[in-house]
Design a protein around this nucleic acid. Structure first.
Lengths: 213, 213
DNA sequence: TTTCATCATAAAATCGATTTTTTGCACTAT
DNA sequence: ATAGTGCAAAAAATCGATTTTATGATGAAA
């Protein structure tokens, strides 16, 4: 498996929750799991550690960061701040080609079923592609980069949380409405909706934590 | 040289401009330069590539990213956005221990001379420590992380630009004023000053680019 | 003269083995 | 019984060698 694919595979597996939060990632076990060599594997782990998707403890290997309420709140609020502005700029600067891409992602997302028995990973990829496509016309590469990082961080929580069938339709409707508002360049409405969308997802994600308090 | 030190050394050398922007970073040359082994070196390069301080071209090694006006404007504006908010939150949440740290960094910075003949690197380290100390009490780890990334990116430009003795005193005064405003918890004044400070540094940094247009 | 293909060189990426460090356990002394 | 020490096993980090891939030069054909 090439280094490029390995990075993507490992990123996905961490976000998916294949590895439990807080769990250690023993190099040899990963080596076997992915059939990868030592060097490419360590390089990929270093890359993921640099973006915060995994942690490195010097001389003690790598581990998956724990899920905490404080971190989730931090990720969610910063994501709202950066992503709403990214959406605003995308709606202002986006051209027809960008809209095509958004619509294409929307239709792929709509036609991909989200059921426990189906391939959830397929839906997740479409969902991610749609959100990133929405801000694809944001003219700030650094903002897009940070939004991408926060999206993955957020997703670790959301995907660790139990399903909420009562909210599924609302969240799905948001996606369609966001695309429509993007098409009509209704900036303020779109920004407000995206904030609500992330806020609602945040509340869903909270359920992955022990609700003692 | 340990992996930890190697990372810090290489980060510093890239920001300092030891390597010319756009230049290729041949592994073997780096291996010699730092007396490092292949594996630790490649791991460090991968980490830096993940944060954007260097670029990786698959199968073609690593290079230092070019300096462009568009990138500088992107970095500067996002830095202003994230760092002013970080300062606001720091002033609101910071305790006495944080203030001690800010003042300690300020005094180290003030007593460190900035002259071409002296050890510029020493001043740069103090300058960085001061700015990061200012936002040290910001309660959002992710915001602090992103600010740190943008600080380094910004510094590549600032340090590539020629000296501006006419602005030196103003910029130095800003640091002292920022510390004073932090001590007095004058949030709005501090935030406004930090924005001006970065804006002025941005104008200095612009001089590292060919001023054709 | 230009373009394309081929080969030789150099560089990057990967691999397997070695070294270093940590960790868990048994043993001893208090 | 507990705290501390030493040892053995396991894991991480590093190294040198090998393999793979890109690059630049050479020569042949159009």
């Amino acid at each position: 498996m090439s280094s490029e694919q390995l990075l993507e595979q490992l990123r996905r597996d961490v976000v998916t929750g294949i590895f439990i939060a807080g769990e250690k990632l023993p190099i040899d076990a990963l080596r076997q799991r992915y059939g990868a060599g030592l060097s490419p594997l360590r390089e990929v782990l270093n890359r993921l550690a640099a973006t915060g998707l995994i942690e490195q403890l010097p001389q003690r290997g790598f581990r998956v960061p724990a899920l905490t309420r404080a971190d989730l709140e931090d990720v969610a609020s910063l994501r709202i701040e950066l992503e709403t502005r990214a959406l605003r700029d995308a709606l202002i600067h986006g051209d027809d080609h960008w809209l095509d891409e958004v619509m294409a992602c929307l239709y792929r997302l709509k036609r991909t079923p989200l059921r426990p028995d189906a391939d959830v990973e397929q839906w997740e990829m479409c969902h991610r592609a749609f959100h990133l496509a929405l801000i694809g016309a944001c003219p700030s590469p650094w903002r897009r980069r940070f939004v991408g990082v926060l999206y993955d961080q957020f997703d670790r929580y959301r995907r660790a949380a139990p399903e909420r069938p009562d909210l599924r339709d609302t969240l799905d409707a948001h996606h369609e409405q966001l695309a429509t508002l993007a098409e009509r360049r209704q900036v303020e409405e779109a920004v407000a909706l995206l904030e609500r969308h992330i806020q609602l997802s945040f509340e869903v994600a909270l359920d992955c934590l022990p609700h003692s308090a």
